[in-house]
Design a protein around this nucleic acid. Structure first.
Lengths: 336, 336
DNA sequence: GGATGGTATGTAACCGGTATCCTACACTTG
DNA sequence: CAAGTGTAGGATACCGGTTACATACCATCC
């Protein structure tokens, strides 16, 4: 169908090796042959076959992104960052909606393993052990989010969750909150642990501190609603909620609204992540924003650099989150 | 590094052809050799190299999804449907965040063209002419959303936007609204046109109908806010808004809230799309929900079927949208 | 008993690139 | 002038599969 390198070689009256040299600007080539080859390429509308190329070089200019749920705005923002960076470097992105439970369905890892994917960005919280072994065994370079690097071909990017969470709780205190509850996420996930830890460290000294001010959620809106109900039952005099992520904070907002509790007047609410949803709630939600898009971009950039040069400039990259103050914590006339 | 088909053949004491036959359950094979081969495969932990395979069969078990913005919940939901369906069929998904403006950056189409991508799902609104030609020329099977099929290798899936919009406007009338404004989306996009058309058809007979009840937006929250301001200036007695999509409806909600106008008591608001955001607004938003996830699933299913059998069961698939009634239109004590 | 046909398997060309190796020429340079 | 070096380009093995073709055996059938 479409032209091959041999067609080009024939038309230009040179060998395939010379065409290849022109294509890759590699090796010695006279300007004369170079021109002839380029002429032939144009004439035949030749485009090199990437698959054939990949077979020998064992690279495909393709990276894979693993996310737990692309529907979650945090991950779609991340994906956008990754995709745009990858594209700008001539890479193609494979999207894997990774459900750690695995089950009997096709494992994404099996599917991509023999496709010579150049690298993986792993943004899903948990990795099931079977898949972890597969990845490690495959030696595919990896950039992970929020975990400890344990192979050579691995780089980790993470946001300082502890510091971010600390800012959030301190902000609530600044706004005059005394009795602040925390809805924490699944403790298998390190980010959730760090946020809880920061909350405890800040609050421990408070005279009103109590373990019953902390309750669990699973990062969904629904769990935020439930957790808020629980907190209100335990502490009717609650005046602040720090949720482990934005989705649960939105749940809190919903639960409070249903009970007719005014935010922020009666209870201030703060989330974590900085997803775009926080701008559409009413009241708009104060949150600790992660530079999500940038994380994606940076992850792709680091990975591609590794793929090209085979080393990571930095194995651990730490970023800061920033507090975005909105209506949900703006108590006017803070009483001291 | 890892075992090849020749290693397996050698260990099993057969030819590579026989191994290939076992691998693809194709051609005659005695149970005896089959067993030997399978034994060798297991022993060597052999996994066929997909790239080498692709080179001859010219297929990669890969499909590409083009979306204008993965960050938009509508498209991420779609993507999830596509991804899960593709994965279940052993296919891998390439995500292309397609910005029709193109610019000078790498064209996704160029990037995937020579990678033997088996098919494309095109969900981005506009396709720039240069890329359109490229796709058509490449003969890659395509499933498109909301457009007219114009090649053999094309199938189109679309939701009956007209009917859906009609339901929305009629619902607003049912709720007692008399003066209903419409914020329409970019008219180059057919879905936006159909929704506007339905609005006009339903409202034309109303005594209060006026072209000034229609104003434009660009499908973003911000434009929804602006459009709502415009409508309110023109018609202070407005009592209903039908927005061309959910994002603009959310903008409307915001604008109304800022002016202290109560929804739905004073003005009822209805969106279109059924994105998950509509459940987090306050009040929750009535919307015409598209079966977004299912569309994605169906698109992938049709495409993969075409790739396998080389024909589409149906070239045009029409789906229905459904009205999801929530707080934003629940006028109690409808006056007649 | 030779022709026909289904079953089983091996050989090698092929897909379309890359890369190694080799030849060849034109220069320095000691 | 022989040796060394930089430049140019051809021939071809190779990557790891698939598949067309050839071969061979064993039934069956007229």
């Amino acid at each position: 169908m479409s032209a091959t390198i041999r067609d080009v070689a024939k038309l230009a009256g040179v060998s395939v090796a010379s065409v290849s040299r022109v294509l890759n600007s590699k090796g010695y080539i006279s300007t004369e042959t170079k021109d002839k080859v380029e002429e032939a390429i144009k004439l035949l509308k030749y485009e090199p076959n990437q698959v054939a190329r990949s077979l020998t070089v064992k690279k495909t200019k393709t990276i894979a992104l693993f996310v737990p749920d692309i529907t979650n705005p945090f991950f779609s923002t991340l994906a956008k960052g990754v995709e745009e960076q990858a594209n700008s470097k001539g890479f193609t992105l494979i999207l894997c909606n990774y459900d750690e439970s695995g089950g009997e369905k096709n494992s994404h890892i099996d599917l991509i393993k023999q496709k010579y994917v150049d690298g993986i960005i792993f943004a899903a919280g948990k990795l099931n052990p079977r898949d972890a072994v597969k990845i490690k065994h495959s030696k595919i370079p990896l950039v992970a989010l929020d975990r400890i690097p344990d192979m050579e071909t691995e780089c980790v990017i993470f946001v300082d969750n502890y510091k971010g969470a600390k800012m959030a709780v301190e902000h609530l205190l600044d706004m005059g909150c005394k009795k602040i509850g925390h809805i924490y996420g699944p403790q298998e996930i390190s980010t959730a642990r760090d946020r809880l830890l920061a909350y405890e460290d800040v609050m421990r000294d408070s005279p009103l501190y109590s373990p019953s001010l902390m309750t669990s959620g699973d990062f969904t809106i629904e769990s935020g609603i439930e957790a808020t109900k629980t907190l209100l039952e335990r502490h009717p005099d609650l005046d602040g909620i720090f949720a482990g992520n934005d989705m649960m904070a939105i749940g809190a907002l919903k639960a409070l609204h249903r009970r007719g509790i005014k935010v922020p007047e009666q209870i201030a609410v703060c989330g974590f992540d900085g997803i775009s949803l926080t701008e559409v709630t009413n009241p708009e939600l104060t949150t600790v924003a992660q530079p999500t898009y940038e994380i994606g971009k940076l992850a792709a950039e680091s990975l591609i650099k590794f793929i090209s040069d085979l080393y990571f400039n930095e194995k651990i990259i730490k970023l800061d989150a920033s507090l975005v103050i909105r209506e949900s914590t703006k108590k006017i006339g803070v009483k001291l």
